[in-house]
Simulated scan of single mutants.
Amino acid sequence: MKKNMGTADKVIRIIIAAILGTLYLTGIITGTLGIVLLILAGVFVLTSFISFCPLYAPFGISTCPLKEK
């Protein structure tokens, strides 16, 4: 797996995951929607840690900065 996520993308995903987790734990979002959003938050955290988003790959999207040689 080639990294395709830059720092800004990872930070944004972690912030969104933290917000979704907080909303679920405080009871603001509940039920099926809450569970689905909690799973999405987990996916955001996982993809941030591995710096790879499987949905970016088929479209050739990369938010990594270009490294000059």
Rank of each mutant, 00 (worst) to 15 (best):
K2M: 13
K3F: 10
K3S: 10
M5G: 07
G6R: 00
A8I: 08
A8Q: 05
D9H: 14
D9Y: 13
D9L: 14
V11R: 02
V11L: 13
I12T: 08
I12S: 02
I12M: 08
R13V: 10
I14T: 07
I14Y: 01
I14D: 00
I15T: 05
I15P: 01
I16C: 13
I19S: 06
I19G: 04
L20Q: 00
L20Y: 00
G21Q: 05
G21N: 08
T22I: 08
L23C: 05
L23W: 00
Y24P: 02
Y24F: 14
T26G: 00
G27I: 01
I28Y: 00
I28E: 00
I29C: 00
T30E: 01
G31H: 06
G31I: 05
L33R: 01
L33W: 05
G34Q: 11
I35G: 05
V36P: 02
L38M: 13
L38V: 08
I39A: 15
I39V: 15
I39G: 06
A41N: 02
A41S: 06
G42P: 15
G42F: 11
G42R: 02
V43N: 03
F44W: 03
F44G: 01
F44S: 02
F44I: 07
F44L: 12
L46Q: 05
T47K: 12
T47A: 08
T47D: 01
F49Y: 11
F49G: 10
I50S: 12
I50Q: 15
I50W: 07
I50V: 15
S51K: 14
S51M: 12
F52A: 14
C53K: 01
L55W: 15
L55E: 11
A57Y: 12
A57S: 12
P58S: 06
P58F: 10
F59E: 12
F59Y: 13
G60K: 04
G60P: 04
G60D: 07
I61L: 13
S62V: 07
S62H: 07
S62P: 06
T63D: 11
T63H: 07
C64G: 04
L66S: 14
K67S: 11
K67C: 06
K67V: 13
K67R: 10
K67A: 12
E68K: 09
E68F: 09
E68P: 09
K69V: 12
K69I: 11
K69A: 11
K69G: 14
